[in-house]
Design a binder for these strands. Structure first.
Lengths: 186, 186
DNA sequence: ATAGCGAGTGTACGATCGTACCTATCGATG
DNA sequence: CATCGATAGGTACGATCGTACACTCGCTAT
């Protein structure tokens, strides 16, 4: 019986584990504090696996951030896809800002790390661009392009505020809903 | 004749030059790529001056970012202080977003580097908090607190978009003015 | 004139970095 | 069963890092 499936010798989830560990590490120590050795230790793989699975630090960062951005975009689309009309879409945007999409500090920090990297190094902008394009497109399921862009900007801006403020949740759900209303009208 | 003034032996602007050089370096290479040696080379001072003038990397970053945030806040206040009524204030906000306050790529990158650092390390949040408080207060010269916060978020959000987009200035002045109008009403 | 002090400098140390490269292991193949 | 290539691991190298610390030397007070 000819075997088509290709059997990995061991541990087929190695690459995934490395990527996941690097995201956690980036959130804790920043891109600055992320090294092959630290990632390897966090993922519990030998140092040699780093250069084996990834061509270098750059490729590791690219893959990790691509995965992260994709996963956030996916959740974003799911939220907006579940809305059946404009009113529900506005409620979804309000929920996205106030609730758990960026609720985990890890995701907030990772988002900023990625933005910062992309702002400084144009070769990472394809990741942020496709992320932004997906978000924009999802918003355009319910809103005109300009309104979509403004809502997107509002999400980014309020997310930043939430990430930087000591006391969490200074902006109430009602206030956010009002903001969405001002931008997206009736 | 008793001398009160304290004469520096040489180069009294050393500290300033170091701070300025570190900001330029952070903009180019990120906090990650900023080292004592690189800053020293950029500022054309010996390596020993680093530990002499600053207790460590952390203090250098604090001073540099404090200076940067202060200077941006100052410009921000100047713009809004020059507005005599609500309409002029709205025009000022539009100008701040579209024009030169964050026009230099350097300032855009530095802003993100600071946000990222503060998001990850709470001990830098006093810098971002006082910056945000100054911006908010300046906006409140003309707008109610909630509107001020939303305008602030809009500025942040659109600034991010500008920093990340390949083609610059996808958002026209007219569109921004419309956005401000939606938020700040009549 | 000179002693002393303190601002400013140069260097060396130990740690850590990315990466290259040689070796080991094991499933697939003839 | 012998061999081979893909996968994985261990280690060593050269570069760079932050920082400590001994030192220099110009200014000031006497």
């Amino acid at each position: 019986m000819p075997e088509v499936r290709r059997l990995r010798r061991t541990d087929p989830g190695r690459r995934e584990r490395i990527i996941e560990a690097s995201l956690t590490l980036i959130a804790e120590a920043g891109v600055a504090g992320t090294s092959h050795r630290r990632v390897a230790a966090a993922a519990d793989v030998p140092l040699g696996s780093m250069t084996y699975h990834f061509d270098g630090m750059d490729e590791l960062l690219r893959e990790a951030f691509t995965r992260f951005a994709g996963s956030v975009a996916e959740q974003f689309e799911a939220r907006l896809g579940a809305a059946h009309d404009r009113e529900e879409a506005k409620a979804a945007v309000t929920a996205i800002i106030t609730e758990d999409l960026f609720g985990k500090p890890r995701d907030l920090v990772l988002t900023h790390e990625l933005y910062t990297l992309a702002a400084r190094e144009p070769r990472f902008r394809d990741i942020t661009n496709s992320w932004m394009a997906r978000s924009r497109r999802a918003l355009e399921w319910h809103f005109d392009p300009q309104t979509a862009q403004l809502l997107d900007a509002l999400i980014e801006g309020l997310t930043i505020h939430r990430a930087l403020e000591q006391e969490p949740e200074r902006l109430s759900r009602g206030a956010v809903a009002d903001a969405v209303q001002r931008i997206a009208g009736s």
